[in-house]
Amino acid sequence: MMLAAFADPVFDSQRTFRELLQAMARPAVPRRLPVLPPSPAPVMPEAMAIVLTLCDATTTLWLQQPNAEVAEHLRFHAGLRLADQVQQADFALIDDPTSMPALEGFARGDLRYPDRSASLIVQVEGFRTDRGPRFAGPGIRHTEMLAIEGLQDGFWRQRAALSAQLPLGVDLYFVAAQHVVAMPRTTRLLEG
């Protein structure tokens, strides 16, 4: 039987959006997602909340591990189109970041329209704000400390390589344990 989506589509997506907006405006700070809708495995309810808030028939979503149940759930509740190729995706759902495709494979926009770029929703193991590297950039007052657990080796190196192409880039939403951390293309990981 198919699972339900948001119990209250108008207000659940509004509350989720406001957290996403603040998350994007204040990168590298975990924010609690207010509503967790039911979600078929391997999609986490946190990731499903973002998809239901932002995706509809005008957007495409790329699934790292497509399966029939997830595809049916998303098509029914969000009416979205699934993308076969990563470069065609407006949104991408990564459930296993250790084997995710290279960041540079996703749409990064073009110089006249850098907004035509992919947003990645990445399911990770957890966040730690008491240790880990420091981040800086627009939205961050001084620096923010954050460790994201479960990413593949070399992920940050890959992302730093993309930053040479600013304002082109991809924007990231990491989700774990009822929280979301947004990482727009402008956020820099500080070395050392």
Partner: peptide, 8 residues
């Protein structure tokens, strides 16, 4: 709006 915030 989210893209606008991501590209100040």
């Amino acid at each position: 709006l989210l893209k606008a915030v991501a590209i100040p």
